[in-house]
Amino acid sequence: MLWGGMYVVAKWGLSVVPPVTLSFLRVALATVVLLAVVRATKPARTFTRSEWCRFIGLGVAISVTLATQFLGTALTNASQSSLLTVMTPIFILLLGVILLDEEVTRVKMAGVVIALIGTALVLSGQYDLSRLTDTNLGGIVSLFTASLAWAAYTVWGRDLVRKYSALETATYATAISVPVLLAMTLVELWMRGSAIGKNVASLSFLLGLAYLSVFATALAWYLWYKGLEYADSGTIAVFFFAQPVVGSALGAFFLGEELGPLFFAGGLVMAIGLYVVSVRTKV
């Protein structure tokens, strides 16, 4: 639900600063918040070299996700961009089976399919899905890369989450992504001629950045990993389908966008799928 709010806030933020720069600011401020909480609540840790390597991998996965997500969105139409929402849970499910030997029960698979159908109904009501076949190979590859990178971030983080905590894993992975995103930002600003809007110091932009940093990044990424403390990656992956429903609802409330009957029908179907996955996963 917190990620669904990004749909509205990003429309304001991207009118002021370019996308990778916004991602860097978002993650840098989130790191400050997360590190402050870790220092206040968790003991000092000494990680092994292999664990630091895994943290670095998670940080790179974050950076790749954010960069390719924005690139793919810029190169494709809205319908094709919706592939990011659909493919991410599927990649998480597959990587969980391949890398973590997680079991996919019949009931869980049924819940995934139900949630996927509900999400497809929501997206078909918001976008022209007939344009999915429009050719832009670079954009499609970028969106698939973003989905796969976030799936890797989810699956690779499980062992660290369960050995230490969701808070520490999210914090150190996010912190490591900051210098990577900074390098990408410098390249972006150089290519764009430092194209930053004049409203960067406006109250509306700063409030939007605060939401992106504190709620959609620090809190949301922590909660995402917190789920891994209680359930396998395939179970929590399905909740990613809630993002377009929340985003569409907030878009209607704040931006005056219309919601058709497919939105409500799809939202109901998706909710049923989430219930099946989260409650009935033993069979």
Rank of each mutant, 00 (worst) to 15 (best):
W3P: 10
W12N: 10
G13K: 02
S15Q: 12
L22S: 10
S23W: 06
R26T: 04
V27P: 05
A30E: 04
T31W: 08
A36W: 13
V37A: 13
R39V: 11
T41G: 04
P43E: 01
A44W: 06
F47K: 02
S50C: 07
E51W: 01
E51I: 04
R54T: 15
V60M: 14
A61Q: 01
A61T: 04
L66V: 08
L75W: 11
T76M: 07
T76V: 13
A78R: 12
S79I: 04
Q80H: 07
S81Q: 00
S81R: 09
L84T: 14
T88M: 15
L94A: 14
D101T: 10
E103P: 00
E103S: 14
V104Y: 07
V104K: 10
T105G: 14
R106M: 06
V107F: 12
I114V: 14
A115R: 00
G118S: 08
T119D: 06
L121C: 03
S124G: 15
D128F: 11
D128C: 10
L132T: 02
T133G: 08
D134K: 11
D134W: 09
D134V: 13
T135W: 12
L137D: 11
G139E: 05
V141Q: 00
S142R: 00
S142F: 13
L143A: 00
F144E: 09
F144C: 07
A149Q: 08
W150I: 15
A151L: 03
V155D: 02
W156D: 06
R158Q: 12
K163D: 03
S165A: 01
E168W: 12
A175P: 07
V178I: 06
L181C: 05
T185F: 01
T185W: 07
L189F: 04
R192A: 14
S194Y: 15
A195F: 02
A201C: 11
S202K: 10
S202D: 12
L203E: 14
Y211R: 09
S213R: 06
V214G: 09
V214N: 06
F215C: 14
A216N: 10
T217K: 05
A218E: 05
A218Y: 06
W224P: 11
Y225F: 15
L228K: 09
A231S: 13
G234Y: 07
T235P: 04
V238K: 05
F241K: 06
P244W: 11
V246E: 04
V246N: 00
G247W: 07
S248W: 03
G251E: 01
F253S: 01
E257F: 02
E258I: 09
L259M: 07
L262I: 03
G266E: 06
G266M: 03
G267H: 07
V269G: 13
A271C: 08
Y275N: 11
T281A: 14
